[in-house]
Simulated scan of single mutants.
Amino acid sequence: MKWFFLALALVAPSHAGLRFGCSTLSIQRLDPLVEPGNVPSAHVHQIVGGNVFNATMDSTKMNIGDAGTCTTCFFSEDFSNYWTAVLYFKARNGTYKRVPLYTNADLEGEQGGMTIYYTQLDFNSNGNQKITAFKPGFRMTVGSPTTNTKAAAVAHTGIRYTCLQTIMTRGQETPDFPKAACPAGIMAIHHFPACWDGKNIDSANHQDHMFDTGKGGFQNAGPCPSSHPIRMPQLAYETMWDTRAFNDKSLWPTDGSQPFVWSANADPTGYASHADYIFGWKGDSLQKAMDSTCMFQACGNGKPLKSQSAAELNKCSIKNTVTEETQGWLPSLPGLAVGHM
């Protein structure tokens, strides 16, 4: 986005920051991190990244960066997988329609998907300390599909929503779904913790090996504690949900409440937002980027990362393991019985 580049031009960063698009790889009920081997998993996810993604992938036993043959991400050495729950509109008659995705500003023509960030200390200066790239086999999650109180949602400082007035809207983030119709859709935001214990590439709940000192948004994070002393990249996702087709208030609940729900537990509050990550950069490519001074997509074309055109990345896909309707008007959400709330 133009104002991003203007702000960054005012400060000479000492380390790199990445911002890039990844097209949608698949939308289906698979979750190899939380529900490995379950076909189908409990709820629908939108997945982007490398084509190794499947129900049983074990990144602790294989190097995903070496196993992948294509990726939907702008940087062609990034075979990582990034995924979130899927947003649905619930009509007055109780049926559901999957909300389409659209591409963020100043990207390369990706289809749907997400905007991915690997930043350092903050979004304007990017800091001057050593950033250690994630290791082969690394995995983590942020948030939880079982979060059901506002207090718990507020405590997840990195998980927020922006009611988009235009594609360029930023700020005014909320821990729950916007209450009013959003002229340019809803942006779901996921910031992962960036302090690592230096030992474990995963943990039982996929979160305890990391510690969050973030303050929400692209702000300076606090220092890492002694229990988790290694500063890693600040990974973040932005997902643009195109809710414009559902902004007619005559389609909304008769009490005027907002009509959108997550695929996870048909959550109408937004509290259950969550995201998953499995590292899959090829070789030491991410570390090279973190050690460089490039910014955003300018890190491509061999400076120092390899990159690909939108036409190339949009060719990458996988076959659905779970064959069920997720897009049309549905009597219930996939994985949930009719009438589930």
Rank of each mutant, 00 (worst) to 15 (best):
L8N: 07
A9R: 08
A12E: 13
A16H: 10
G17M: 00
S26V: 15
R29G: 15
L30M: 12
D31G: 04
G50D: 02
G50K: 06
N51F: 03
A55H: 14
N63D: 15
A67P: 07
C70N: 14
T72G: 01
F74T: 04
S76T: 11
L87D: 01
F89K: 12
A91S: 04
G94T: 00
Y96V: 04
K97C: 07
Y102F: 15
A105W: 08
E108W: 13
G109L: 12
G109R: 01
G109I: 00
E110F: 01
T115Q: 05
I116L: 04
Y118F: 09
L121Y: 01
K130C: 02
I131N: 09
K135E: 13
G137L: 09
M140S: 08
P145E: 05
T146N: 14
T149N: 07
K150E: 06
A151I: 10
T157A: 13
Y161M: 09
Y161G: 01
Q165R: 10
G171H: 07
P175H: 04
A181L: 13
C182A: 14
I189M: 11
F192Y: 12
F192M: 15
C195L: 01
W196F: 06
D197T: 04
K199F: 05
Q207S: 07
D208E: 11
M210C: 12
F211I: 07
A221L: 08
G222D: 00
S227H: 14
S227F: 14
I230R: 08
R231E: 06
P233D: 04
M240I: 11
R244Q: 12
F246E: 01
K249I: 05
P253E: 13
G256H: 05
F260M: 11
N265P: 02
Y271A: 00
S273I: 11
G283E: 13
S285H: 02
Q287N: 14
Q287L: 13
M290G: 02
T293M: 10
M295H: 03
C299K: 08
N301R: 02
G302R: 04
L305A: 04
S307W: 09
K315G: 14
T321L: 05
T323K: 06
E325C: 05
E325R: 02
E325S: 13
G328M: 08
W329H: 00
W329A: 08
G335E: 12
G335W: 15
